[in-house]
Design a binder for these strands. Structure first.
Lengths: 239, 239
DNA sequence: GCGTGCCCCGCTTTTTTTGGGGAGTAGAAA
DNA sequence: TTTCTACTCCCCAAAAAAAGCGGGGCACGC
């Protein structure tokens, strides 16, 4: 677990992949080279979809899905609010549900040590790159001290590839919003009422409605709130 | 421009800062060590706020602000949709406004070569870490080939520090939402109407209103849309 | 035992938003 | 040149949401 990595080789390895399967193969090699038990890369979105690659036992992956564990998993919750990588030990495991979850995870073959790197892509994509292992705290600390920085880079390149494949698979019909539409959406997201937004943009409320409506239809949203949420998670507006 | 960097030292240097001023000082040293003309780190948020550190001439920074150039700047627009670092040459500089912008930039002392790394933090934060220089394409390519990966890491750590300072400056008062409130907010964000949400959660619409209202007041939001936007950007719900 | 937070339900009134129309300008792209 | 997109304005009726009031029960920690 303390071996020196040839980063140039690893990153080239990653770069050279052109299918998801190849990426998975690289992930396996990477896991072996890092000498950890598990290596996980997955995306999270609100509709319970998890997508990615894991070396966890299938039983655990299924259980995780079935129980909607992503909603209580401290790793997900914690990483979602942080920027830097997170050692699982530093997360908040107090609380009944978290403890139950942890027990369940351990009993399904998940290692006791973990290090997760949150990754955010365009369009509000959120992913986690995780290495997982069973060992004592001291050993794990040495591993992280040695490979922490390298893992950040690996996670970066890994995600880059995954995004590439994903956007091929689902070419997002991301018609972008016009500047005025962005203005309107942004101000709405900031809590202004339509009257206030119209006033801010010095346009009539009727005109404003046209923007909202066209943004809504571009985003395929059901209503204004949905449009705001969609625009936010696609990264089309920033609040 | 091709010197070997002592990454350990640079990152430690970054880590050791505890004020924004110190971070700025590190940025200057970093610029000198990289032997580039300019080094810029800044955030962009919806309210036109730009915040960060730049070595551009003040005149340019002011002009940029005054003209709201962030709305047409191909670097911002391009990076906002990408995950990986972007060489300015690969961006779309066709179009009248873009060309005018480029001319204006060059005449204010901005170098012709640039490399920008998009960085996304929690709460929808978006930042750019940019190095800028004047030289020919060949020289620039060598520089990027040599330092590209290192720049990613530097950008990561730089942003990490900046986020740290910013969140100190603005401590978020994040009272968390109850499970039921999270349910309500999530479904609303997915575009369901109140009636549909109430039906999904098998509670009355009146009860649902209580959750929405209590979530709204916890989040200090003006209205439901604002509450959804706030919850999303604070990472309390995921869509 | 008391407060606090969570969970559930009811009514009414006012305000806001939404859904459908239609029309004209300017500027950029093809 | 034509075509397209973005931007601006207007009307109306219906639906939805907000905002105000009220009620009760359960579990947890101090």
């Amino acid at each position: 677990m303390g071996t020196k990595l040839d980063m140039g080789q690893i990153l080239e390895d990653l770069e050279s992949t052109s299918t998801l399967d190849e990426l998975s193969a690289v992930a396996v090699r990477l896991r072996d080279r890092l000498q950890v038990e598990h290596l996980i890369y997955h995306w999270v979105d609100g509709a319970n979809n998890q997508y990615g690659y894991t070396t966890y036992p299938d039983a655990w992956a299924e259980r995780y899905q079935e129980k909607s564990y992503h909603r209580i998993d401290p790793v997900i919750l914690g990483c979602f609010q942080r920027f830097h990588p997170v050692d699982w030990k530093t997360l908040d495991w107090s609380g009944k549900v978290a403890k139950g979850f942890l027990q369940d995870a351990l009993s399904h073959g998940v290692g006791n040590q973990g290090y997760s790197i949150p990754i955010r892509g365009p369009n509000g994509q959120f992913a986690l790159f995780t290495v997982n292992h069973s060992c004592d705290d001291e050993t794990w600390k040495r591993f992280i001290d040695t490979h922490g920085r390298e893992l950040i880079l690996i996670a970066h390149y890994f995600n880059r590839k995954a995004l590439e494949f994903e956007s091929n698979r689902r070419p997002d019909a991301t018609r972008s919003l016009s500047p005025r539409e962005v203005d309107a959406m942004t101000l709405l997201a900031l809590g202004y009422s339509r009257a206030q937004v119209a006033h801010s943009l010095t346009i009539s409320e009727h005109t404003l409605r046209v923007y909202i409506e066209s943004a809504r239809s571009k985003l395929g949203a059901q209503n204004t709130t949905h449009a705001i949420a969609t625009a936010l998670s696609r990264g089309l507006i920033v609040v």
